[in-house]
Design a protein around this nucleic acid. Structure first.
Lengths: 215, 215
DNA sequence: CAGACCTGGCTAATGCCATTAGCTTACGAG
DNA sequence: CTCGTAAGCTAATGGCATTAGCCAGGTCTG
């Protein structure tokens, strides 16, 4: 394999930088090529087209988010795990707002491996509450909707900058926690049921209740 | 004013149809012109450019959403108002998924009149809970984040189609309601404190605590 | 060590789209 | 009837994605 100065990974990396600096709108093959010091058509040797580049970038960002949240919930359970999960989500978004905004919604983010992993982490975090079947699915969706909705609004300037958005987020977290069944959660947490190191449910590596890979 | 076969409103209307049928990506001046039976440059007599067209379309969609939610909460208060507000939000989104997805996030949706109105409606809905100052702002943000986040995920296929998303949404609503201070809410609701006809707070027409027009 | 081969890069070309400039004409006011 | 203006048109420019086909440098084989 000759002259491997560029690769698919490198292209995605450059794309990521562009998005971070200039926003998702600015992600163009020309821009990537320029930054790579290469002619635009050369990129087609590494990615099929712009759409695929966007998808790969999405996947990368989702992976980073999954990593961050997984790390945050390690060794925690119950309310503390939920708090850590949601806080880590927001922290990542605040660190890389443009990157987060560049996540593709079209193919359903949950159809990808990273999306699945994020889903597993949510499910694992909710483990201590003794939720099963559709109850677990519903609760997972609530967590995701809240985290994602807040992230989108905060990143897109939907909130005023001068009011404490952190406090708003804490309130949102509290609301979600109040809505989860605390009695069961406490009991489970007390018997030492913590999140596993993989960040996922130990036995199936994914959400067993997802009929088509999403939830 | 001669030959007024087209107008800014008509252009936005056509844009709206295109978005509904083919998604936000397909919104192009060429497409609008084609549908209007007119040459592309002619559109510049009615809209400044594509960006402005998108902004106008956003505003229109936000207005529709505000109308729908305002109508839904009329005459209700407390938990019932919150439920109606959130259900109306989702109902609108499900009726016009592409349209909702086309809302521009860039200029901060809340910087516009329609965004302000939607904000006022949220605030009015929370009125019965006796929230004031930043507490009201925080609660408003939670409602918006939850509604928007769920909407985005549902519309973008983030949820599996075959599991009851409606039930998930009801759970989310219940969580939010549990998180709002029920004691105050009940008391206020009992003294007949309902949302005003305009859908907004009667005395200021907007969120009095918004320092720069957002919250 | 020499040549084949494959891979990653290049140039040229096409086509779509947004946007600008400047011309033309229908319509309504006077 | 005339004139001004608004609304439409054609032509032209430039950015971008994408495809086709050419070229060279490394690698591997004989």
């Amino acid at each position: 394999m000759p002259r491997a100065s560029l690769s698919a990974e490198a292209v995605v990396e450059l794309a990521c930088c562009i998005v971070d600096e200039q926003g998702a709108e600015a992600l163009t093959l020309s821009a990537v090529a320029g930054r790579a010091g290469v002619a635009t058509p050369s990129l087609y040797k590494h990615v099929r087209n712009l759409a695929e580049l966007r998808d790969r970038l999405s996947e990368r960002v989702l992976t980073e988010l999954a990593d961050r949240t997984a790390e945050a919930v390690l060794g925690r359970s119950g309310d503390e795990a939920v708090r850590a999960f949601l806080r880590a989500w927001r922290a990542y978004v605040l660190e890389h707002p443009q990157r987060y905004a560049a996540i593709r919604q079209d193919p359903g983010p949950q159809a990808t491996p990273a999306g699945q992993r994020l889903l597993s982490i949510s499910a694992a975090v909710l483990r201590a509450y003794g939720l099963e079947g559709s109850a677990l699915i519903h609760a997972t969706r609530c967590l995701r909707a809240a985290a994602h909705g807040f992230a989108v609004l905060e990143v897109s300037g939907g909130f005023a900058m001068d009011e404490q958005t952190g406090d708003s987020y804490e309130l949102l977290i509290d609301m979600l926690l109040k809505g989860l069944d605390r009695r069961v959660g406490t009991r489970a947490a007390q018997r030492g049921d913590v999140v596993t190191a993989s960040g996922g449910l130990r036995d199936d590596g994914g959400c067993a209740h997802c009929r088509n890979g999403r939830s």
